[in-house]
Write a protein that binds this DNA or RNA. Structure first.
Lengths: 225, 225, 225, 225
DNA sequence: CATGAATGAGTATTCATTCAT
DNA sequence: GATGAATGAATACTCATTCAT
């Protein structure tokens, strides 16, 4: 679990507990700063000096921890996948039928991007908004692998949904992901709806429109997620 | 009409028909090349040399026609808005109820991005994928104005939809746009569904889930759009 | 004595009187525009487009009249020498002793730079402020020759001055030229002194301080120039 | 004190003595090289590569020390003001009457531009020959402030001169400055007069021509400056 | 004569990256 | 671990100049 599950790990391992702790902090700090800056400015417009300034380091020092800007982005991306994935898993783990799990998982996904913790939001936003397109070519495969990791969760959940015959489950999944990931482009924290409410307002009509006729109608108030 | 309705127009007008025709062609050619390259690489990673190479010009020559890279992007964006907007308008102009118009307009929107004409696709994709964020600050206002122009069409159309009470029309609109604009990220032209079919598969469940109970159920086969 | 006494003449001669007249006007117009722009922005910062804009031409058209930017500057410079030289000559031609002639010639020099006719001022200012340094190397010799032409007048005039023994006439001349040419850097047309008065205030103390003891003291009011 | 008193200081301070010394040397070296090249070619015609070549650096490296070409020029200018100003102050600090101080200060001014130390000459020449006109607009105010700083010294000195009634002290000051600053345009180091002698030859006649009648006549030999 | 269009060599500036200390 | 300094390749943009029409 730690911050460095991703492939783009730092150059060398540390040698004692004190150093590891310090190192860990420094790494986490660096990764968070990078996430914040990447989110704010995008990859191409972010300079290593921007990130360095956000940590109190100088640009050269970053290279002690990450071998390149692309690796740093990849590490941020991976951490984004990890965090959003965990939120997703937590939502799915709670009892309920498949539609309820979808509502809650969507809410979890959105809350990671828009919720109270700005660090979650930074990592999740990078994960959700950065496209393979923005990466240096040598990292694109890894990026796609990470993304697939996450999307597999969605795939499994949608596969469990009781749907009318003929519904294209892949398209349903992509429609939900598209709608959810579009939210940060217009969301205002002082708006009338919470991220969870938005997520529910996105998925509930789809349930109404697509669930198999035999299933019980969802009653809006029964799921407190 | 024509390519140069947009705000970011070329530096000077021409004075006779022959020159105008030539000039027009060159401009259209330049704009199309820029659209293709911006779409492929994004704004930040596209160099003026890339665009020049795609037209057979030298980088410096572009500046005879557009005063900056940002202006060129803006012109491409504006042309994207114009093309997608026209497709939208054509769809809405055909007779039908509001839901039918929404289905067709969504199909038009998607077809611009994914349809047979690669030039439409280039302009539309730039329009849809470039964010204010990617623009030089001095052009962002204009960009937002252009985008609002287009979104107003969607707003009017959604306003005309017969919906259950309590449905948030703004959210519905943004959900549809989000889902539609996400399609190019996964669409494969050799896939089983046409862009129009995808659009319909996105909006039809929403109709089923959200239309006001009194309205007639949509029968899938009646709208041939 | 037309505009083109200088070496940097236009590419080809004209063939009939009408054309010559028109050509002459166009040339004069171009030269004046160039003088104005060179004066305002300096050689290096002036673009051919600046000059073209000031004449209503396009940049390429200038090359019909002058083979290069350097040649254009040289022509302006030469015209400056011509105009200031003529003013100098007029002042010297009027009757009076050598000191009176010096006062009047200095006044003429200054009036060319600061007087009522803005065209004189443009040409004179370019002449006076542009240094060999600013020229393309291939024109520097010619520039120096032109400048020497003008300075020879000053040299002759100073040679005729009745001075105490031991006075360095060359230094005196250069001191006067330096002081005069410095005036445009601080002169304000709404100031209390006219260019002629300034010139006199510069040269009169030098007369008082340097003229040979036997000469009559200048009485301030006698020379109305 | 030292090289970096001026406003256009390098980007960041250093943290230990060794580094500071190195840094200081590098800065001084860079500034001196820039002064030499600016003096030789003027601001507009000097390229960053020229300056870099003169220091053994790469053009890009200059930006580690100065944020722009304009800032670099300003730093050179400021150093010129500082050096010439100090020479002026030293001359004024020595005992003597106001006229003697003027002679010596003028000599100091000239010696800075033409004296034995080529570095002084570079800085002083840039100070004296560069006009606000040559600067990027954003630096012009600062330039004028620096220049005023220096001219105030001259103003105070001229204010102390015993002069005939009616003499325009401002004009006298500007006449002297104009004559002095013109000298580098014709001075040859192998000529018959030293810079100090030239300065004296410029100011002494003005004393003779302008000092108030009651004052003692200056005897040429008494002031050995 | 004039122009629209293009060129290509240059210009300042940026920035990821390196490295000695 | 960290940094100051440097690098060099790339980038947007400029501009004198050319030339077909």
């Amino acid at each position: 679990m730690g911050v460095h599950t991703a492939t783009a790990t730092p150059r060398r391992s540390v040698h004692n507990a004190g150093a590891r702790a310090r190192s860990h902090n420094r790494h986490a700090q660096l990764l968070e700063a990078a996430a914040a800056v990447f989110r704010e400015r995008g990859f191409a417009l972010t300079t290593m000096r921007d990130i360095a300034a956000a940590t109190g380091m100088t640009a050269g020092s970053i290279y002690y921890h990450y071998p390149s800007k692309g690796d740093l982005l990849l590490a941020v991306y991976a951490e984004g996948v990890r965090r959003v994935g965990e939120a997703f898993d937590r939502a799915v783990a709670r009892p309920g039928d498949a539609w309820q799990k979808l509502h809650r998982a969507s809410a979890g996904h959105l809350q990671m991007m828009l919720g109270a913790d700005p660090r979650d939001a930074d990592f999740a936003s990078v994960f959700v908004q950065v496209q393979p397109h923005d990466f240096p070519p040598e990292h694109q495969d890894e990026l796609v692998a990470l993304r697939n990791d996450y999307e597999a969760r969605f795939r499994r959940l949608v596969a469990a949904l009781p749907l009318r015959r003929g519904v294209d489950r892949r398209l349903l999944r992509l429609q939900i992901i598209g709608a959810l990931n579009h939210v940060p482009l217009w969301y205002r924290p002082d708006g009338p709806r919470s991220p969870a409410a938005i997520a529910r307002a996105i998925t509930l009509p789809l349930q109404r429109g697509l669930e198999s006729p035999g299933a019980a109608r969802p009653s809006p108030g029964t799921d407190p997620s």
